[in-house]
Design a protein around this nucleic acid. Structure first.
Lengths: 192, 192
DNA sequence: CGCGGGTTTGATGATGCTCAAGCCCGGTGG
DNA sequence: CCACCGGGCTTGAGCATCATCAAACCCGCG
């Protein structure tokens, strides 16, 4: 469990045995069943979750009551609402388990102290955030430059692992169209 | 010039006089005329630019030859292609001055050394990136949850400073629709 | 076996794009 | 100082795309 996180961190910065013990004293390890909520709209988000095993999603509620997918996250990803996290403001997001999960979380109310004791984590999260930001801009590019159908194919080709794990209605929302339309794309593919 | 950067950094982390001198030895200060390119498609991006004065934009070329706006940046923002920057891969982006600019840049080939000497900059950029990432996800939300017209109004209300500074065709592209459509939105507003 | 969430299918319609033409206005050269 | 040029903005007609709505279907689970 905890070793997965240590290994992930060590891909970016050094972390010796003693430091690992310090880190461990600041994190919370938990198992969460499928479809449970880690965060609900209106709550202030105080945690940043690292996924050892499983799958999370975040979404917002649209005016018409539909759920708009914001992010997926699987093994070795971090997920939180940085906006709420940073400003201590109520979140617009729901964060929910899509599968049974093994999670490790850091609480922002102790994170500052942790960063002081293990300053290399500043660097670690800087690099993680750099990747996340770049990925988010990429996704915006796909929204702008590709048609819905092209977005689906692109996702299919580049993230085949997800297709098996998440229901289609979540994927459709993530890609920015309706489940009905996704169904029609699939029918078209089956024809040829 | 350089003081603007120092003041911005000091909003997030401490930086004493001696450290300011170190920082200064690692940055490049330059004035660039309107419509000049800092980066062109196919080049590897080695710099991260801080805007002291002026306005930058980044865009990609779409298949049909149109320019798709990726980001705007004005005073006290950083702009780069993190994707190219990080992987040392050729960029898909053009980065161009929209106005005459005063810029400060850091070169990624010396940045590592700078971060070792001034480790608080790890934290500074972590916080900057956290904001950038949150903003990027917000923008995705607007793309998903608002109609083109609503996006325009939202942008109008929240970033009035930009409306004066950037031509409409750039704004339309940034918001994800055509200049023609933006013109029709404006006509509609004028009616009422 | 029956229920219900998720997916499929089809008809209809709105939204925003494309294309083409005209206009407005600031800058340049005669 | 005026004429012209061209980039950017406007306007309108026609059209493609994808959403909406409704109904049927499929299948896993209790």
């Amino acid at each position: 469990m905890f070793d997965n996180l240590v290994r992930h961190i060590q891909k970016f910065v050094a972390l010796n045995a003693e430091e690992q013990i310090i880190l461990k004293s600041y994190v919370k390890i938990e198992s969460v069943k499928k479809k449970q909520f880690l965060l609900e709209e209106g709550q202030v988000c105080h945690a940043n979750w690292f996924i050892v095993k499983g799958c999370l999603r975040s979404y917002t509620l649209k005016e018409n009551g539909n759920k708009q997918m914001v992010q997926f996250a699987i093994e070795n990803w971090w997920l939180t609402d940085y906006f709420s996290f940073e400003n201590k403001k109520p979140s617009q997001l729901f964060i929910q388990t899509v599968e049974d999960c093994e999670l490790i979380s850091i609480d922002d109310r102790t994170a500052e102290e942790l960063f002081v004791r293990l300053p290399q984590l500043e660097r670690y999260f800087r690099l993680i955030l750099q990747k996340s930001f770049a990925a988010s801009l990429m996704r915006l590019q796909y929204m702008f430059n590709l048609s819905p159908e092209e977005r689906f194919h692109h996702f299919n080709d580049n993230f085949p692992a997800f297709i098996q794990r998440v229901p289609q209605y979540m994927l459709a929302s993530y890609l920015g169209f309706t489940p009905e339309f996704l169904s029609k794309i699939r029918a078209k593919i089956a024809d040829s």
